[in-house]
Simulated assay, not measured.
Amino acid sequence: MRCELLRGAIGLSAFTPAVASWLARDPVRHNHLCTVVSQRADGVLPTEPDALWALIRAAPGTPPAWIAAWTPPHLLLVPELDDEAASALVDALLEAGETVPGVTGMAPGPSAVARAWTARTTASARRGMSTRLLVLETLRAPDDVPGRLIRADWTYRPWLIKAVLGFEADTPGDEPEPFTERDAARRVDYFLSGGRAWLWEVRGEPVAMVCFAPPAAAAYRINAVYTPPEHRRRGYAAAATAELSQHLLDIGAAAVLLFTDAANPTSNGVYERIGYRAVAEGETWTFTPS
């Protein structure tokens, strides 16, 4: 296999049509890649000048067998690459003089990249967060939780910024750059501008947050589910996730999915009780030069 690297916005303009069919084959497992590509191709987020878009082909001129994306300062993002594809990707990155801080994505792709990277460099690799991809099967919404789901407007922006900071503080992170209040504000503005930030409200007070990413081939990903500590263990997050899941089905979602921390049995149990089931695993590796 050979890997072709395209760079920045100009590279993305060639990458996007080349990978459309590949991404559409499995918009659930490849949802994170779909989102990263579409957000930048549609101008929702600016394309990083040093972003790299990888086309991994079995032979020159053939459709891509695999793809990958690197949008610094984030980690390299890969699908479930095999060893041959991972080796081709790492070879191309090193030939281009790139040093990536780590890799994340669907198993076993990150492990394959980590093996190839450490075999070709002096870096060591550390296993990071493991995730679980859950897909909604049959929704079972709780009916005994007080409150209601509302779409957040801009008046809730300060509350949402605090909630996103709390969510990040509670979530193990492997990204090379620390998450700041400015990052939280940018994320909240992104959710609010698209009408994708929702709140569970009890007696006029927001008690939980749930958001979702733009759809990829009619597959919607729920993310940033968070309840402040003083409102936990009352079922608010489960109720909010279930109600938002139903809303997404009502507007035409072909699939609703979310990622959880594989090491957190509490959150996994909550989602499984409302009808989600695990279909795949994700993993992360970070690299440290010797």
Score class of each variant (00 low, 15 high):
L5D: 05
L12R: 03
S13V: 12
A20S: 13
A20H: 04
V28T: 13
V28C: 08
R29E: 14
N31K: 03
H32W: 13
H32L: 15
R40F: 05
A41C: 05
G43L: 11
L45V: 13
P49A: 08
P49T: 09
L52M: 13
L52G: 07
A54E: 07
R57T: 15
P63S: 07
T71Y: 02
L76K: 02
L81H: 02
D83K: 11
L93F: 09
T104N: 11
A114G: 04
A116T: 10
R120S: 14
R120K: 13
T122K: 08
A123M: 01
A125M: 04
V135G: 00
E137N: 11
L139D: 03
A141D: 03
P142C: 06
P146K: 11
G147Y: 03
R148I: 14
A152D: 00
A152C: 03
W154C: 13
Y156V: 13
Y156G: 12
V164M: 05
T171W: 10
T171G: 04
F179D: 09
A185Y: 01
R186A: 15
R187H: 10
V188F: 02
D189R: 08
Y190M: 15
Y190V: 11
G194F: 06
R203K: 13
V207I: 05
A208Y: 02
M209S: 10
V210A: 10
P215N: 08
A219R: 01
I222T: 01
Y226L: 07
T227K: 00
T227M: 00
H231V: 12
H231T: 11
R232I: 09
Y236W: 02
A237F: 03
A240T: 04
L244S: 04
L257Y: 04
L258Y: 02
D261S: 05
A262W: 06
P265W: 00
I274A: 02
W285I: 09
T286L: 07
T288N: 04
